[in-house]
């Protein structure tokens, strides 16, 4: 089975600072991979580069056989770490906009999730609380029938009850032909969701293993092992 995401020799520098240093990575379809590392390790930079928001200095990225461009963007669903939508729009208008631009957007599913989380679709985005805004953005990202989901801190500002709903949603929408990359600090909450983990440090891949192998080898949970590896 050919890989969904193949990265070779990816390097990104900001002046003298090297954010990504010769990254090599492959991810097969049907995996939920945790992208983990301390702040500044390059997680967000890596994700943005795959999305096409940053131009790398060198290296290649291939998403389901496509380089970064229109075809790759069609099959990537990105959840950014910040709010990236026009505040003044109502949620209904935003959903319509997503459907307008993305063919694979599942409107029914979006409304179902919005009602399950009791979010008023007539509200304007800017009137929502921070946590609700994050939930909405996550729902929008998960309503796409994409091949590669890149979720940057999907449950960061969300309350624990909603977190469980979100994690269950991600699990329920599991599609063996798609893959999800979750970049997060809240490892213990999301551990059970992941089957692979990537540890980044100083812009390099330190480790890329199935999570159960890590538990087996080190006799610890992913969260504990992470703390050990990145101890200050």
């Amino acid at each position: 089975m050919s890989n969904l995401l193949t990265i070779q020799g990816l390097t990104k520098k900001y002046g003298s600072n090297t954010a990504l240093n010769n990254i090599n990575l492959s991810i097969a379809p049907g995996h939920i991979t945790g992208l983990l590392g301390p702040n500044g390790s390059g997680k967000t930079t890596l994700i943005k580069t795959i999305c096409g928001l940053l131009v790398p200095n060198s290296g290649t990225i291939s998403v389901d056989g496509n380089p970064v461009g229109i075809e790759s963007k069609k099959i990537i669903s990105y959840l950014p770490d910040c709010t990236c939508l026009d505040d003044s729009m109502t949620i209904t208008a935003i959903v319509k906009t997503f459907k307008y631009f993305f063919e694979d957007f599942d409107t029914e599913r979006a409304y179902e999730m919005l009602s399950n989380l009791s979010i008023d679709t007539k509200a304007r985005f800017k009137t929502l609380s921070k946590g609700t805004k994050e939930k909405v953005q996550l729902i929008l990202a998960m309503s796409r029938r994409a091949k590669l989901y890149l979720l940057d801190e999907p449950i960061g500002g969300v309350d624990p009850a909603a977190r469980e709903y979100i994690i269950n949603t991600i699990m329920n929408n599991y599609d063996p032909s798609a893959s999800i990359i979750i970049s997060t600090h809240l490892i213990s909450d999301v551990e059970q969701l992941m089957d692979d983990a990537i540890f980044l440090q100083n812009g390099q891949v330190k480790l890329h293993k199935p999570v159960d192998d890590i538990r087996d080898e080190y006799g610890k949970s992913l969260d504990e092992y992470f703390r050990e590896v990145y101890r200050c």
Binding site: G52, L53, I70, E71, I76, Y78, T83, F102
Partner: peptide, 12 residues
């Protein structure tokens, strides 16, 4: 921040 939306659209 809206640029995140604009440049992830499936358009050149």
């Amino acid at each position: 921040s809206e640029g995140y939306f604009a440049f992830t659209l499936p358009a050149s």
